[in-house]
Write a protein that binds this DNA or RNA. Structure first.
Lengths: 350, 350
DNA sequence: TTTAGCACTCTCGGCTGTTGAGTGCTAACT
DNA sequence: AGTTAGCACTCAACAGCCGAGAGTGCTAAA
């Protein structure tokens, strides 16, 4: 996508300086302020010339004649690819991540939710975490538990350490030993296959079984179909208030636009999947809004990383914010959190 | 709280008119606009006199000398108590509620979540729903289901139609028949008591049992203690974007304040509980922000109603918005939704 | 190639005058 | 008595104007 042309050393230094000050101050940066702040051995006029060059090449832009420069997406992209220092999170951040994660309740769903809060807390931007993707989750165990005479709970455990339960309503009571039989059958079919495969297996069985047992199996298929739940319920997005801190969203119409965008969090995750998971292996990445398919997200950008259970990629997590984000700080945090979450979930799944 | 003094008929008419136009236009209303819109057989000057009276009595206020009047909280309160027409939701709204509710998945948790979305959809304001309160939920059935050798899922069904599952990790495998035994024991203890009572029952048993079985029971207590989960996870608040539509929140600092407020949704529900559930029977109510304990919510108000399962109040649902809300439209919707949800959950709980 | 100097541009904040909606008061009217 | 028309007055909102400040591009000298 972006050509791999390298800029001259001076151009790089100045691009870096512009991005750094713009990200920290949120104001268009002028030549004078750069020489003041970074005092590279040249004058403001020289810096001006270089900046003009960078603008010509599309790395910077001016909001109006005679005001400071602001990085373009291309500028950010260059920074991300070539200029950003590669570093671990600060000890304090690492500490915070470790302690928060270690004291989490032992339930996959809750861990996911808290991780998004954790990301928000540390990055000061909204955190987003997608729960493990069910479509290729493998069923570890199925259990039908009688609740009342006319209700049975179906408990399904998957290989990600997640457990889901749904109620099945029966038209009439089912004898206990019939239930046992079906239970056994389900586990024969169910272990080690995906939800979908299991649904098909039960359907086949339906053709030969009869009566009450049949009705239960029918219900089981129906429930199984429902289970890999609506993705929107499975994406946790916390800390959206943090966006109000950013001056770019002090304009209400902008704020509103971004909140609308974030409300479709399943959609956002879908876009990230397209970016992250098509590579092999899936990898860490920063996605600028303008690089995403549908228009309208120019203002935002996402630092995202896949996370894994037992060596297999199962979901995505990240931090959402304005384009003007301190990537050098957020990037390490997201990477480290992804690693820690992967370890935690793997341990949990046993 | 509010004295039951009745205003004169003309005062009531004019108060009603002011509130109605203010709610619809969001702008301070003047005497002329009222006579134009409602043409009661008097002149603007007369209306002015009455409005001055109403202001003196605290039902209206002026933002600055010589601009239209705006209702005060006292004015709204009077309107709610005496002036608001009592009416059912419109047929379209009723229809929408019925169809949306009827096609919901048969899972208590999901129903609750969708109900908050439904409220937001119909009222055009954020909808809030508190999941059934677990503290006095009664356990219907407990089932320990083996997942792997070292993991057991504990499934608990309550009398509200809710089913919760949590994983228990074992230090070492537990023989299947031991599990059966414990299962049976749990159900003897567990049926018809609250979570807390059950926890105590198991603890007692612990003293006499030994070895593996003991460890499992210990774990069960631990899990049971965790189960009535963090309230914040149990309050669903959807459609917050809708607030951006309201002109009062076009000011970023106001918008931010209210979003911060809503982020603590567990807290908000707690305040509503204090208002709604102390009455006996708990009843439908509109709560103005200024009537709530801690300062800071003057800008908002909530139309809320308890809902029930099997005749017992189990939770609260409602609509959150600016003080300037079309109560005459929202109130019936909330009431009707509460009724429908109650019926649905009762049916589900069987 | 770099730098100093300078004229120029554009935003932003403050100030001013105007407009319009709406009020309160008074005097006449029913 | 209560109601209404008339009128002077108030105040927010808006537009226009000005000056300050930050920053630029260009040119000519180092």
């Amino acid at each position: 996508m972006t050509e791999s042309v390298r800029l001259t050393e001076r151009e790089e230094t100045i691009l870096h300086a512009v991005i750094h000050t713009y990200v920290t101050t949120a104001e268009a940066v002028g030549s004078r302020s750069i020489v003041k702040r970074y005092g590279l051995g040249v004058s403001a006029a020289t810096v001006r010339n270089v900046m003009a060059d960078l603008e010509e090449q599309g790395y910077l832009e001016q909001l109006h004649t005679s005001s400071g420069r602001v990085p373009t997406d291309r500028g950010y992209r260059y920074y991300l690819n070539h200029l950003m220092p590669v570093q671990p999170p600060s000890p304090e951040e690492r500490d915070q991540i470790d302690t928060e994660l270690s004291q989490m309740v032992k339930d996959a769903q809750e861990i996911i939710r808290h991780t998004s809060q954790l990301l928000a807390l540390i990055s000061h931007h909204p955190g987003i975490v997608e729960a493990p993707d069910d479509t290729n989750a493998v069923i570890r165990h199925v259990e039908l538990a009688p609740i009342t005479d006319s209700r049975v709970a179906m408990v399904v455990a998957d290989n990600y350490g997640g457990v889901r339960t749904m109620l099945i309503a029966l038209d009439e009571p089912l004898p206990r030993d019939n239930l046992e039989k079906l239970n056994q059958f389900l586990n024969e079919q169910g272990e080690g296959v995906t939800f979908e495969q299991m649904g098909r297996a039960i359907s086949r069985r339906l053709e030969t079984s009869q009566d009450e047992e049949r009705r239960l199996a029918e219900a089981a298929v129906r429930v199984l179909g429902l289970m890999p739940p609506h993705r929107s319920a499975q994406v946790f997005l916390e800390g959206t208030i943090q966006l109000f801190e950013q001056p770019e969203f002090h304009d209400v119409s902008k704020a509103r636009a971004i909140f609308t965008l974030l409300e479709r969090r399943d959609h956002l995750i879908e876009l990230l999947r397209a970016r992250l998971l098509t590579d092999d292996p899936p990898r860490f990445s920063v996605v600028l809004g303008s690089e995403m398919e549908p228009e309208g997200m120019e203002e935002i950008s996402v630092v995202a990383s896949p996370y894994m259970v037992g060596g297999q990629t199962v979901g995505i997590l990240g931090v959402v914010g304005p384009r003007r984000m301190p990537y050098w700080r957020i990037t390490p945090v997201v990477g480290y959190t992804a690693g820690s979450l992967s370890r935690l979930l793997t341990r949990l799944a046993g």
